[in-house]
Design a protein around this nucleic acid. Structure first.
Length: 562
RNA sequence: GGAGCGGUAGCUCAGCUGGAUAGAGCAUUCGCCUUCUAAGCGAACGGUCGUGAGUUCGAACCUCACUCGCUUCACCA
């Protein structure tokens, strides 16, 4: 941040006719680090100065004040700036060591509330890898937004209402037994659900029966209500186990059922604004002018739909939290729905609908096939996490057999690998599930980052964890520079991740920092007795602090030893 | 057909608001544990950036056309 301003200021004094912001926008970071820390291309000045860019660069170099820089040099049309590594490095380390917890924080959010609709598994269905995506992306975004001083509100909009309960009740009444469900709730209910869809293909009466059961539920029929509560309770208990493992916690579990008594108002509002139309026996809102299909508010049998509930939820959230932003971390395949949702709210005259953002993510397939709960083609999250933990345990037994708390560490490493894998790439990328890939511990993975941090802590322990707050942090070793530069970028990285709602910006950064540190570690000896030892330890401490912070933003736990 | 996302090394992906010889990881081959954890470090190999035009001093990036893959388009969520 500040280092860039230094470059801008130096250039501004020799380019009085150019706006500072314009200069800043042209400054780039050379990919090749031997070409300096910042570079200024002179191409764009060629036209107005009527000179060759190479010549302009030369002239600027002659006039520019080089104090505070290690050197400035011209390569072709580029002016390359080399920062004073020792001084700049020491000040970056000082900043981190003096207040590690707040390093990288900023106030762009000004405390504003941001609701995050995330995870939202369906009751009576197992959690799949798709739910993992929503859960970990939402959780990471909440952490990232908090770091830039928004106030995130994590809402688990449980799928605890809807026609699937009608189907489930039909199936249960026809083929189910209480004992079977109690023995293994989710898998059994899942089995009923799959069977329902199989048999309904040849027997359409089942669909009618399911519709009837759901209608009963909506009308408060005691038997239907009882079954619903039972299914819900059993499911929720199992979900909580997974959330504990992922260390994800919610501010609200208000799911679909919570809005049952809030939908009449939505219908009334729509009616009073004359937005409802009848079409084929159903009630719709026409969205022609948004170039969207009509939003179906009420089915021909009078039952409500997803969007009606989401309208109620959006209005409720606005009233309850007065959000500055409302995020929905939901798969990309639902983008049409969210466009409709925003459009209907807009039609209702709610300008705050502009603050609603669908945060889509890519689809997970397996063997190129879309996963489908209805057809029973799913990847169970629980199994993936179990596999990952088992594998981590095996690794520990091989590589660090004397490790204390091996089980806990295996959990952190295994789960960390799965979570990190999900956050590593741009969230809109879809990917084909490959267990080996997901639970990999080498290369660009969560464990790689965890390992780099564990090694840094190990060094600090060996050094007796000295107090580093007031030590001289000047490091002359050029190997340290890439690490320090990376450390200095953290704040910008966090802001970019927040602005783009993109956790992968953080994961990529932690990988890069870990890589830079591992290189330094391999090439420079830290624990040698000389007058820069405490400065080097400061660097190591700063790395462990920032890696810990970055991993925490991602919701990945970091073991002190592994 | 409309809308959306994508096509970069054998595989998985980076590539910032257009800039200097297109970068990682995995896989393959080969080095490095008598020094701070080898879940590591280093080296080699590997690319017509889907195709064709255009804008520009300069295009993987912007525009247009085409092409391939996935998603979605009222009574599921």
């Amino acid at each position: 941040m500040e280092t860039k301003t230094q470059v801008v200021d130096a250039l501004a004094t020799v380019l009085p006719d150019i706006q500072k912001v314009d200069i800043e926008s042209k400054i780039e970071r050379p990919k090749d680090t031997t070409k300096g820390d910042y570079a200024f291309p002179a191409f764009f000045l060629a036209k107005q100065l009527h000179q060759a860019p190479q010549q302009i660069a030369q002239d600027l170099l002659a006039k520019i004040d080089q104090t505070g820089f290690e050197k400035i040099e011209v390569v072709g049309p580029y002016l390359n700036f080399f920062l004073d590594k020792v001084t700049v490095g020491a000040s970056i380390l000082d900043e981190i060591i003096s207040d590690p917890a707040n390093y990288g924080s900023s106030n762009v959010g000004e405390g504003g509330n941001v609701t995050i609709d995330m995870s939202s598994p369906n009751i009576a269905k197992p959690m799949s890898m798709g739910h993992l995506r929503s859960t970990v992306i939402g959780n990471a975004l909440a952490n990232i937004l908090k770091k830039v001083n928004y106030n995130p509100i994590k809402i688990n909009h449980l799928g605890d209402w809807g026609t699937q309960f009608g189907k489930l009740m039909t199936a249960y009444k026809m083929w189910g037994s209480e004992a079977e469900v109690k023995a293994d709730p989710i898998n059994t209910l899942q089995k009923y659900y799959v069977r329902f869809h199989q048999e309904a293909e040849t027997n359409p009466e089942l669909d009618e029966d399911a519709r009837a059961w759901f209608k009963k539920l909506e009308d408060g029929d005691p038997e239907a209500m009882h079954l619903w509560e039972w299914f819900r309770e059993e499911s929720l208990q199992l979900f909580m186990k997974i959330y504990d493992l992922l260390d994800v916690h919610f501010d609200s579990f208000n799911g679909e059922a919570f809005y049952n008594d809030k939908m009449d108002e939505v219908i009334e509002l729509l009616e009073s604004k004359h937005l409802l139309q009848e079409s084929k026996g159903a009630e719709i809102v026409d969205l022609e002018k948004y170039n969207l299909n009509p939003a179906l508010i009420k089915k021909s049998d009078g039952a409500t739909l997803y969007i009606t509930r989401d309208l109620a939820a959006a209005i409720y959230r606005q009233r309850t939290y007065n959000f500055v932003q409302s995020l929905y971390v939901v798969g990309n395949e639902q983008q049409n729905h969210f466009k409709q949702l925003k459009a209907v709210l807009k039609e209702m005259g709610y300008d705050w609908s502009d603050n609603i953002h669908h945060i889509p993510f890519g689809l997970i397939t397996e063997g190129g096939r879309k996963l489908s709960t209805r057809k029973g083609h799913i990847i169970l999250l629980e199994e993936v996490l179990d596999d990952a933990m088992q594998l981590a345990k095996k690794q520990i037994a091989e590589k660090n057999p004397t490790l204390a708390n091996a089980d806990k560490v295996a959990e952190q490493v295994g789960v960390g690998a799965v979570v990190f894998h999900d956050l590593k790439n741009e969230r809109l990328n879809s990917f084909d599930f490959d267990l080996e890939e997901v639970v990999r511990f080498e290369g660009e993975t969560g464990p790689y980052v965890q390992y780099a941090r564990a090694r840094s802590l190990s060094i600090l322990r060996k050094a007796g964890n000295p107090d580093l707050t007031n030590v001289d942090k000047k490091i002359s070793d050029p190997n340290a520079w890439e690490v320090i530069k990376a450390l200095g970028n953290y704040g910008d990285i966090v802001q970019k991740a927040a602005k783009d709602y993109e956790p992968s910006v953080i994961s990529k950064y932690t990988l890069q920092l870990a890589k830079d540190f591992n290189q330094y570690y391999a090439h420079s000896k830290i624990l040698v007795e000389d007058n820069e030892k405490l400065a080097r330890l400061s660097l190591v401490k700063a790395v462990s602090d920032v890696l810990e912070s970055g991993l925490a933003l991602l919701g990945v736990q970091a073991p002190n030893e592994m």
